[in-house]
């Protein structure tokens, strides 16, 4: 059974009195263990699509169904709970909380969700893989862009969620770290987590089990 399903998903925006479709009638499903990569030009609707999948943006029409439940019929509290426990979203840009250390940032979703924190071993295992163990007690303001990005990825993967959605996660990373992150995503997918990655880096497409292309709001299968 698909963990996430998008049915005839449409998102329209109004720009200077004209309506345009950022996401145009997309049907999409992802199952546990899938590693889907989405490529496409800037402005093709990729980020809007990801925001629709995570319930951060409401669709104009269509539905997103997660674990058999339509987000349309789910309240904010419940959608927030799903984002906290089942879906980890890595947005574009920096998304660490400036008042917290890297360690606290990684563990923050457990704090707000009232969940049992992962063990120190798990924290160190993920931190080691991403090369941020020495930075755990630093504040985001003391980190470089690449270090912040890796800390954000650590926050997403630490509890092996049902779905990871990453919007250009390796944009600010060098190629060595880019491949390291892709390996982490592939490993976590092999353990049953569904992974969706939006990327412009064609050299990483080989890690995916499926590659899709977004073009003017429409999604089509490439591989």
């Amino acid at each position: 059974m698909a963990f996430l399903e998008a049915q005839k998903l449409v998102k329209e925006y109004n720009r200077r009195g004209k309506t345009f479709r950022a996401v145009d009638d997309i049907d999409f499903t992802i199952e546990p263990g899938d590693f889907v990569m989405i490529e496409g030009e800037s402005g093709s609707g990729k980020t809007t699509f990801l925001n629709l999948l995570t319930g951060l943006t409401d669709p104009t029409s269509g539905a997103v169904i997660i674990d058999g439940r339509s987000l349309k019929e789910t309240g904010d509290k419940e959608i927030s709970k799903i984002r906290n426990q089942k879906i980890k979203y890595i947005p574009q840009g920096e998304s660490l909380l400036s008042a917290l250390t890297v360690r606290e940032n990684i563990l923050f979703p457990f704090t707000i969700g009232g969940l049992e924190r992962p063990s120190e071993e798990r924290l160190l295992e993920v931190s080691d893989k991403l090369g941020i163990t020495d930075l755990l007690d630093e504040y985001p303001s003391d980190l470089s862009g690449g270090e912040m990005r890796r800390a954000t990825i650590a926050r997403a993967v630490i509890n092996k969620p049902s779905l990871i959605i990453a919007d250009e996660p390796t944009g600010s990373l060098d190629s060595a770290n880019t491949f390291k992150v892709m390996e982490i995503f592939r490993d976590i997918a092999s353990e049953g987590t569904a992974v969706i990655v939006v990327t412009h880096q064609k050299e990483t497409l080989g890690y995916a089990t499926r590659v899709l292309e977004m073009d003017q709001g429409s999604l089509k299968e490439v591989v």
Binding site: Q85, P91, L97
Partner: peptide, 12 residues
């Protein structure tokens, strides 16, 4: 942006 991050992390 911080509030947006909180939303992304699952804060209602």
């Amino acid at each position: 942006k911080e509030f947006a991050v909180l939303r992304i992390l699952g804060t209602s």
